[in-house]
Amino acid sequence: MRDSAGTTVSLVYLARLREAFGAASERIEAPAHVNTVGSLRAWLAARGGAWATELAPGRAVRVAVNHDLANADTPIAPGDEVAIFPPVTGG
């Protein structure tokens, strides 16, 4: 059952974004209205600085929720792991 006070979500930052944000991971208590990838992105961008720069609309950012690639509409629930990373460059 969702905590009415918000939602604890684990965030993971990878590759160049880890360097830009200065953190590999964090746990957040997001407000209840932050319940999709898109709303989470906007909420993080509102922090300003590198967050605003890297997560601005139109910037090429990929997101995975619980290890599955997600899009802006993908829901986020308490206990989820959300990873934010640049377009991949393997192979």
Partner: peptide, 14 residues
């Protein structure tokens, strides 16, 4: 498999 790996598999080169 290679085309999808290049665009979907979470690897990054530095």
């Amino acid at each position: 498999i290679m085309d999808y790996l290049k665009t979907r598999a979470p690897f990054w080169k530095k």
